[in-house]
Amino acid sequence: MTLLWRRPTTLDGAIEELASDDAAIYAGGVSLVLLMNLGLFEPATLVSLAAVPGLAAVTGDDEAVDLGAMCTHARLAADPILRRTHPAAADMFAGIGNVRVRSWGTLGGNLAHADPAQDPPVMLAALHGTVSVVGPRGDRVIPVEAIAEGPLSPALDPDEIVTSVRLPLAEERSGSSYLKYLPGTKDDYATVSIGAHLQFDRAGAVRQARLVAGAVGPTVVVLGAGSEVLTGHPLDPDVLDALRVAVRDEVNPSSDRRGSADYKREMAGIVAARAASACRPASARP
């Protein structure tokens, strides 16, 4: 079977090309060629988005920033707008994989890869991100955490294309953090990762909390119970410990090379507490 390479210059053109059998979107190539190299994926046609205009921009308005799906991780890590509006997200992008992955891997490719151990879906879901998708049956917007149905199974039709991610601007007195627990080598996916976004009231109590965990399930997990524990309380040690217990009891990981189910569950609680603690706005930190 010979592989065909298509390089449409419009989104509609790309959607059309994707209609052929076993066609796949080619963004940066890192995840896709990796699967091809391992013999796990053999597409018939690759549809490059490189020549489709307008997919690699970062734009902001007074409600949100929009991150183009074809932006590379390195581009986002260095983006002045994102760095100002969502510094924790910019830091997260700066810590993905290795420098070569960051040079070529794209936001859209990463989300469509639907790997629950990847960093972006965890942090971006914590920041209430939404994904814009276009396709032959119309456009839609889905929350970041809903983009995956399971490992390597995106909740997208094969001819749908991720075009951007929208992150609402952070509220006043809020803080975000992303913690990746790497007990072995620094060059690895997380054993557990937590994205946290906390909003505080004037007194320093948590008004609203959103915590999302990675690598503890088939998809990223929005920690409902964990967030509930924090709401209405300052981040004192008792509350953080209650958070640890709540998160531990909420997640249901399976064992993998990076940790047993038991260990991941316990670590999710500990890392969640540490991530929440790192969300304190600078003024509120001891």
């Binding site: 080619y26 890192v30 060629v33 994989g97």
Partner: peptide
């Protein structure tokens, strides 16, 4: 894409040439 023995620069960017298609 892990070991880096295939590293080249493409327009100045470090690149895993094992994970990059020539057409790209």
């Amino acid at each position: 894409g892990v070991c880096g023995t295939c590293t080249v620069l493409v327009d100045g960017l470090p690149t895993s040439s094992c994970l990059t298609l020539a057409v790209q």
